[in-house]
């Protein structure tokens, strides 16, 4: 009886420690851990003015999938993925997937030129004071956050996206 208890005790202690250390290692590998918005969290609401002076509020898109992209005109990988995003936007717009391309702290002049050049038709909220960028803990750009129709974060990535990847993302958040 005593022996059995001891085995249980030992197994339990070892298991707890293995889980604790494992979780620590997992979290330390995962750069976006901590307080920042990552998989499974509810994406916090925000409101920004877009390039055309219109108010864009995240909550208004409840019921739709939101492809939330943080970008800058000076960032080469951002520039690369813009045409792909535009093309897929045109296809998925009817399927209730919206793209919000939040510009990180740039001027209307620069962004306007860029938007015209790439004929971007999705809203470009201007995060001049970096409020949203800070709240979402955005480090490197581009960072893309996928939000489903319930406002939950499905995916977060800082990779430069291929068109194929964008399609798979769109499929993922299609309501």
């Amino acid at each position: 009886m005593l022996k059995k208890n001891r085995l249980w005790f030992r197994s339990a202690l070892l298991a707890i420690l293995v889980v604790a250390v494992g979780y620590t290692i997992y979290n330390s590998m995962n750069e976006e851990s901590g307080t920042y918005i990552s998989k499974g969290n509810t994406a916090p609401n925000f409101v920004l003015t877009d390039l055309n002076g219109k108010q864009v509020e995240l909550e208004d898109y409840r019921g739709k999938g939101v492809f939330l992209n943080f970008w800058g005109t000076w960032c080469k990988p951002c520039e690369r993925e813009m045409p792909y995003m535009q093309r897929q936007y045109e296809k998925y717009k009817e399927q209730d997937v919206e793209i919000l391309a939040v510009n990180v702290s740039e001027t209307n002049v620069s962004v306007k030129n860029f938007v015209d050049r790439y004929r971007m038709s999705f809203p470009v909220p201007m995060d001049k004071q970096r409020e949203v960028t800070k709240a979402y803990g955005i480090g490197p750009i581009p960072t893309t956050i996928l939000i489903d129709k319930n406002g939950k974060v499905v995916e977060r990535t800082s990779e430069s996206l291929s068109e194929k990847k964008i399609i798979s993302f769109m499929e993922k958040i299609k309501p």
Binding site: Y23, N27, S33, G34, T35, Q129, E131, K134, A135
Partner: peptide
């Protein structure tokens, strides 16, 4: 390493301006 225990961020503020404090 557990969520919510730890905030480490940097905040740049220009003189005369206000900025939100991350976290």
């Amino acid at each position: 390493f557990f969520p919510g225990m730890y905030v480490d961020d940097i905040l740049w503020v220009r003189e005369g301006e206000k900025a939100s404090i991350p976290g």
